[in-house]
Simulated assay, not measured.
Amino acid sequence: MTQNTETAEDNYRAAFERLKQGQSNVVPRGTPVTQNNVAREAGREPDAFKKTRYPALIREIQAHIEISAQHKEIKNKRRERRHERQDLVTKAQRYKKQRDEAQSRLVSAHRAVLTLLREKAELQRRLDEYLPPLSPLWNS
């Protein structure tokens, strides 16, 4: 009977290791590590994998689950920060593009104003050619 318990625990431990490494044989790859999934991966019923029979292994599994949860939380926070940074970079690029377009419009508007001022000056010069000079009487 001692041999069966050791063999079962060895099976559970091997299944636990396979699940941790993501190289399961029975359950689909990438299945999260849980007490029930370790039992399934070992080819046993989850009800047979009891804390009273395998307390050390179950504590290891629970510790791994807790550490993994913390690790996942840290990863998620990093991923969120990375997305926030990417969003900020995207916003900055969009604002730079808007700024460049606004500067382009401003330069075009300045060019149009200069063209109109030159045209006005030319028209004023031509008009002055057709008008007689003002007499001294009009200046007083």
Score class of each variant (00 low, 15 high):
residue 9 E to P: 07
residue 89 V to C: 07
residue 58 I to L: 11
residue 13 R to D: 05
residue 51 K to S: 08
residue 72 K to Y: 12
residue 70 Q to E: 15
residue 63 A to C: 12
residue 63 A to Y: 08
residue 13 R to L: 01
residue 17 E to R: 08
residue 102 A to L: 02
residue 119 E to R: 06
residue 117 L to F: 05
residue 134 L to V: 14
residue 17 E to A: 10
residue 55 P to T: 08
residue 20 K to W: 07
residue 53 R to M: 05
residue 83 H to F: 04
residue 100 D to C: 05
residue 62 Q to H: 07
residue 73 E to L: 07
residue 116 L to E: 15
residue 21 Q to Y: 07
residue 91 K to G: 10
residue 5 T to Q: 08
residue 6 E to I: 04
residue 27 V to S: 05
residue 64 H to K: 06
residue 80 E to A: 07
residue 92 A to Y: 07
residue 32 P to R: 01
residue 85 R to H: 05
residue 10 D to H: 06
residue 115 T to V: 06
residue 100 D to G: 03
residue 104 S to F: 02
residue 41 E to I: 12
residue 88 L to I: 13
residue 45 E to I: 02
residue 32 P to M: 01
residue 73 E to R: 12
residue 55 P to R: 07
residue 80 E to Y: 05
residue 34 T to A: 00
residue 84 E to L: 13
residue 86 Q to G: 04
residue 123 L to Y: 01
residue 45 E to V: 03
residue 134 L to N: 12
residue 103 Q to Y: 08
residue 9 E to L: 03
residue 127 L to K: 07
residue 19 L to V: 00
residue 124 Q to I: 11
residue 36 N to V: 11
residue 101 E to I: 09
residue 74 I to S: 11
residue 132 P to V: 15
residue 100 D to Y: 00
residue 101 E to T: 08
residue 100 D to M: 10
residue 139 N to S: 12
residue 83 H to Q: 09
residue 109 A to L: 04
residue 7 T to D: 04
residue 30 G to D: 01
residue 10 D to K: 09
residue 50 K to A: 03
residue 45 E to D: 09
residue 32 P to G: 00
residue 121 A to T: 14
residue 78 R to I: 10
residue 42 A to E: 05
residue 44 R to V: 13
residue 130 Y to M: 10
residue 2 T to W: 03
residue 111 R to E: 10
residue 26 V to W: 00
residue 82 R to D: 15
residue 140 S to Y: 02
residue 97 K to R: 15
residue 81 R to E: 15
residue 14 A to P: 06
residue 77 K to C: 11
residue 100 D to A: 13
residue 24 S to H: 06
residue 81 R to S: 14
residue 43 G to Q: 04
residue 99 R to K: 06
residue 40 R to D: 03
residue 64 H to C: 11
residue 40 R to H: 12
residue 58 I to W: 01
residue 110 H to I: 14
residue 64 H to E: 12
residue 21 Q to S: 15
residue 7 T to A: 02
residue 2 T to I: 03
residue 95 Y to S: 11
residue 22 G to S: 12
residue 54 Y to W: 04
residue 131 L to K: 11
residue 1 M to T: 12
residue 10 D to C: 05
residue 41 E to P: 08
residue 125 R to N: 13
residue 19 L to Y: 01
residue 126 R to F: 07
residue 50 K to P: 03
